[in-house]
């Protein structure tokens, strides 16, 4: 779509307090993965996206965060009226978008404390310095709520972390960065039940009328702990069904075939 048209459309939507995805088409290496995905997450709501392997779940999270391997050929994404696709990766984050990675990266030699500090510092106007005392106090309080050892601040980001530690670290980052919209990409994968509960509690404490969540998961289990307002089923790059939280249970019971068959022409 020509940029000019997009802008006009944006002005029209300027006041909306939602993460709005319209007819999103995206491909990687020439293969179209998202094929016209439409979805709206208003602030204050938790939306879950479920879908079988290969349906485009992770692609959606990466496209929203701005990963350069994914090419958007069509569609619009706005966050509180701002055209998200026009922003750089780091600008999206500073504008209030957060992605909890399915596979968080290891950054050897960079301590967690320095990393978080740099991320917060990047949000301040030039010349303004972060208050170190307040920063540590805040970080320690949030770490306590996630049952994280204080020693962890001096360890390198995700370096040598267990799967559970990495996911907890993602949630800590989310808490520290205080986003308007958070996407959790299969945060439950690789977690045992205790770690899952801690992570879910962390997310639940973050729920507020000022924040929207998009929880991407393969399993219904996570949704026992983070109870969604809306559940979407993603299949072959499109949302094919939307319902309440009971939809997740139904999917768990009947499997994805049930929805995809429904979709098939009679």
């Amino acid at each position: 779509m020509p940029r000019k048209e997009r802008r006009n459309w944006l002005n029209f939507n300027n006041m909306s307090q939602t993460l709005n995805i319209q007819n999103l088409h995206a491909s990687v290496d020439g293969n179209e993965i998202l094929k016209g995905l439409t979805l709206e997450v208003p602030k204050g709501e938790v939306h879950a996206i479920m879908g079988p392997n290969g349906s485009g779940k992770s692609t959606l999270s990466k496209v929203l965060a701005g990963h350069e391997d994914y090419e958007v050929s069509e569609g619009l994404v706005t966050m509180d009226g701002v055209d998200l696709l026009e922003l750089e990766i780091d600008e999206r984050s500073r504008a209030g978008l957060f992605l909890a990675f399915q596979y968080p990266h290891e950054i050897p030699g960079v301590t967690n404390a320095n990393f978080l500090r740099a991320a917060l510092q990047a949000r301040l106007p030039k010349g303004e310095e972060i208050d170190a005392v307040g920063f540590y106090k805040d970080m320690y309080a949030k770490m306590d709520s996630l049952n994280m050892d204080r020693k962890f601040t001096g360890r390198a980001v995700n370096d040598g972390f267990s799967g559970g530690e990495k996911k907890r670290n993602e949630i800590l980052q989310m808490m520290m960065l205080d986003p308007n919209y958070a996407i959790l990409d299969e945060t439950d994968s690789g977690l045992d039940i205790d770690a899952l509960k801690i992570v879910a509690e962390g997310v639940n404490r973050m729920r507020s009328p000022e924040r929207g969540f998009l929880v991407i998961t393969h399993y219904q289990r996570l949704l026992d702990y983070i109870v969604p307002d809306v559940v979407h089923v993603l299949f072959d790059g499109r949302i094919i069904k939307t319902g309440g939280k009971e939809l997740a249970l139904e999917l768990e019971e009947k499997g994805y075939d049930w929805v995809t068959q429904e979709l098939a022409p009679a």
Partner: peptide, 17 residues
């Protein structure tokens, strides 16, 4: 990408790594 997704610009991310 990981550092940028936390709001750190690409140049600063390179330097940090």
């Amino acid at each position: 990408f990981y550092l940028q997704a936390r709001g750190i610009d690409a140049e600063a991310a390179r330097q940090m790594i």
